[in-house]
Amino acid sequence: MVEQIVAAILTMVLGVAGCAFYFIGSNWLLDRIFPFKQGDSAVAARNQLITAAIRPWLFLGPAMIALFIYLVYPVFDSLRLSLFDRTGGEFVGLSNYIWMINDGEFRQSMFNNMLWLIFVPSLSTFFGLIIAALTDRVWWGNIAKSMIFMPMAISFIGASVIWKFIYDFRGEGDAQIGLLNAVVIFLGGSPEAWITLDFWNNFYLMVILIWIQTGFAMVILSAALRGIPEETIEAAVIDGANGVQIFFKIMIPQIWGTIAVVWTTITILVLKVFDIVLAMTNGQWNSQVLANLMFDWMFRGGGDFGRGAAIAVVIMVLVIPIMVWNIRRANAEMEGR
């Protein structure tokens, strides 16, 4: 254990020192090869142009290499692998995709993912907005926000344990130790093994992600609400609007842009959600989702890279509209600067 800590610290120091050495060294070398601070002015001017053209790439180099190896190349390789067989050796055309369309589990995952895509972003944004509006009006709002934001720091797997404990089921007659069943019994119902209930179990799993993501939505929307110009609200008050009218007719329209950002960010997260399903049901009782199915095929029966990659491509395709929208938004923002 001690060995491991020492090795970790050593690598860290080496890594950081290596980075520093690269940046300092390459810049020093560039200035040495093309000096522009003294000597002949014509040569200096030419050298200055050359260094100005080269230096950005020295700055960008390591980042570009890492991005290429870990994100750009894999995207294309996944596309390629999705057309190959389980080991990636033999070209099989579209047969992985055809298999997928006819596979019951894949269809179930698609259906469940659609449920997740509809309910999680909408409910997280909705709760986030309501809580942001309410907490802005109480003096201890910041403490309240902090508590609601907290689940954000908890891992999906930790959150799954927390909620699995809440959904815990003991046979009828035994004392329930899961909060949900205890409440149900208190209200006169009978206990259920919640996460095994076909169809509805999706919602019990979604609750976990909503619980985590509401804090994120709240923080962003709260900042947006505070950024609304006072005059617009004052004008509405003078015109005799009440609190609810002001909220829905004056404030919400002014923060549509932010609501869209929150919604899409959570949508992306939902498409990638994996840990929660893995920990709670591992796809049993018809609760499978794409990301977990993909992980499953990656290792199932020694791993089927073709099918795994094909499922990953489906997730990617679902993300692309948001990606395009993000890029256009970023471009518009840069032009506005």
């Binding site: 390789d77 795994g308 997730i315």
Partner: peptide
Amino acid sequence: GRALLIATVVGLLVVPLQMSLIPLLK
């Protein structure tokens, strides 16, 4: 190519990790 690079970074922000796993594992 600066604008293109920035757009690439923004695009890569949302690339699902799942796309990277199999090629990187290989």
